[in-house]
Amino acid sequence: MLQLEDISVAFGGLAALSNVNLRVDNGEFVGLVGPNGAGKTTVFNVISGLVKPTAGNARFIAMDLLKQPIHARARAGIARTFQIPQPLHELTVRQNLIVAQKFGTGHSDPKRIDEILDFLGLTERAERNAANDLALTEHKALEVGKALATDPKLLLLDEALAGLETTGKRQFTQMIKQLHEETGLAIVIIEHDIETISELCQRAVVLDFGKVIADETPERIFRDPEVMRSYTGERSA
């Protein structure tokens, strides 16, 4: 459903991504891994439209992705979360979801909003100010909630689990797993934890220095010493 071809991104002459190819099929769960600064978030930014690539092509279903403005991509079914949660300011949790649903899908469905709140355990927090009155786990859940409210076909999760303590992480992982199994939604997740990737993903793509260095099943990837060296940040001179 999503196909990136030879995507390159440069910031002020520095290459952030070079010739990245990425394919995501219907209902697939893909892990995007690699050391800090490898360009993982930049890949998400290219897909969601926040960053314009300097070269390459991208297709989503039948759409030439790069020609579309950010909001049109959301409308077409691409949803993402931010690594640092970005709740919509000045709004309550419920209003966050209402805005996402109305603009992401074009219609309002209060019942669906209640379902999402319930699924994410946010029902009791629904009327709170999203920016100021939430704990970290709740902020993370709201990130996913906003994305789900747009009724996506492809969900991009940027370190949705980072910063959570063990129990929270466990619950969150199960929740995402359940989401994937129940809806058949295609998901790409950026995540450092090998166990989580192995548990969730059918395939993992490894980025290093803006290049794809491996694209395999998690078992194979985490057995490859070359990949693991780059993954843990040890680099031979």
Binding site: I70, A74, A79, F82, Q86, L88, V99, F103
Partner: peptide, 10 residues
């Protein structure tokens, strides 16, 4: 940015 990525044509 957060509003744009949920589909708001800002």
């Amino acid at each position: 940015d957060a509003t744009k990525v949920v589909g708001v044509p800002s």
